[in-house]
Design a protein around this nucleic acid. Structure first.
Lengths: 238, 238
DNA sequence: CGGCCCATTGAGCCAGTTCAAAAAGGGTGG
DNA sequence: CCACCCTTTTTGAACTGGCTCAATGGGCCG
């Protein structure tokens, strides 16, 4: 729960007390192992999930096995805010690593949100960010070269993690295999690997197993046209 | 205003009376010529816009002039619902054709939404669809071939237009130049042209200036793995 | 009729793919 | 601590979908 508090507090002037009610809602903590499904496309979802630890992915499969990862869900992210209207999910969600999830009944969640306008605004904010990340992903996959794509995804993940942990860190713990990066970026694993090698050769990053160290964040951001302003826009106004 | 009523009524059991208040809100009708900006990236937006006629595009430019169109905004679409929190826009919106827009002050809009839970649900629904369209776009640009991309975009646009006009039509009036399709699909104009020629050769479509006729909708949907269920999911429950 | 913009077609090229093999981890059991 | 197996990552080599550059063809407007 810390993570999401960090995240929201990063933007909104919202106190811990505001979260007490949310924290105290009836909930269940679920654990899923890497690869297990959390939500299947076509299912109706009655819960809001908050990622406590681990990474999850939202993805869609095509008939012949191609997979597109739509986005990564990191600690502090929640889903599906959008399905508070009891819509069927159109994409699947599964655990990318071992994941701990807080599961809250949509109805309870909605009721709480409605009682506190600050909470409502905060979660509206969360939804905006989610959309922004999706749009960024479209630009990446649509118009960027492999080098730019890999670099900007690394920067995005690093930035998002640092916001929810509350500490800036140039060492990005990457708990997912390269195939996940490839399927997020619309590239082949082979080329992701080559591109990472190139980033390393250029001195942008250093690579350790399960780890990427960002050595020249600014240069890399320029190279990939990565602008993280949208990830920590001005504080909320009420 | 008809368009958005059609659209929402297509999903939600919501009566015309519910829209009266929305309709009667103080607003301005603005007209923009093709190519003119509506919202600039970095701007704070205080208005909700509803497209009355014409097409608009949301896009982002990269330094060297590459452009990614994030999505098309058709009659009945509204934006930016998300910036009801007074966020800075992270992408630009401009008119793709001559456009008529209904401009409503965010505060007024928000106030009305809040008074009527049915309206609130309806617009939450609109936001879900918007996100769904974005996700679909990610899958398209990330993992689909040029043929699949072009076909599925044509099907999506056709579907969305038919929902807001209320009539199914196999003739898609395409008022934008090929460059727009290219920039939406992450392809070059040249290749969009070739791909359209291929679709025509295969008998999926017929082409007239400014017009695309869908001849074999089902086959085309299978070919492009286009599933429009998400665009007219079950009716809303309250 | 001429000019301009957009769309199409042709030809060669290149970024990223596929196929294949080798190398590097990372358990697990002896 | 080593030997084995399995998975992931890296590297090599050849291929190709889509790109770029360039020329041609249509439509529309003045």
């Amino acid at each position: 729960m810390d993570m999401i508090i960090n995240r929201i507090a990063h933007y909104a002037e919202i106190g811990i007390p505001q979260f007490q009610e949310l924290l105290s809602l009836p909930h269940r903590i679920e654990t899923r192992e890497a690869g297990q499904d959390i939500v299947n496309a076509g299912e109706t979802v009655d819960y809001v999930f908050i990622v406590e630890t681990g990474w999850a992915i939202r993805y869609q499969l095509l008939d012949d096995g191609r997979r597109q990862i739509v986005n990564f869900m990191l600690p502090g992210d929640c889903f599906d805010l959008m399905s508070l209207t009891k819509a069927k999910s159109d994409h699947s969600v599964s655990a990318a690593t071992q994941v701990m999830l807080r599961r809250i009944k949509s109805d309870d969640f909605l009721k709480t949100i409605k009682t506190d306008p600050k909470l409502a605004t905060a979660f509206w904010w969360v939804a905006i960010q989610e959309e922004t990340i999706l749009r960024e992903q479209i630009v990446r996959n649509g118009r960027m070269s492999a080098k730019e794509r890999v670099a900007s995804l690394i920067l995005e993940l690093s930035r998002r993690l640092s916001i929810s942990t509350g500490e800036q860190d140039n060492s990005l713990h990457l708990p997912v295999p390269r195939t996940h990066l490839a399927d997020a970026l619309g590239l082949s694993v082979v080329h992701v690997s080559r591109t990472l090698a190139w980033l390393k050769r250029e001195g942008f990053i250093a690579i350790d197993p399960g780890m990427i160290h960002i050595l020249r964040r600014n240069d890399m951001a320029v190279m990939a046209e990565f602008d993280d302003r949208h990830l920590h826009i001005n504080k909320l106004k009420y």
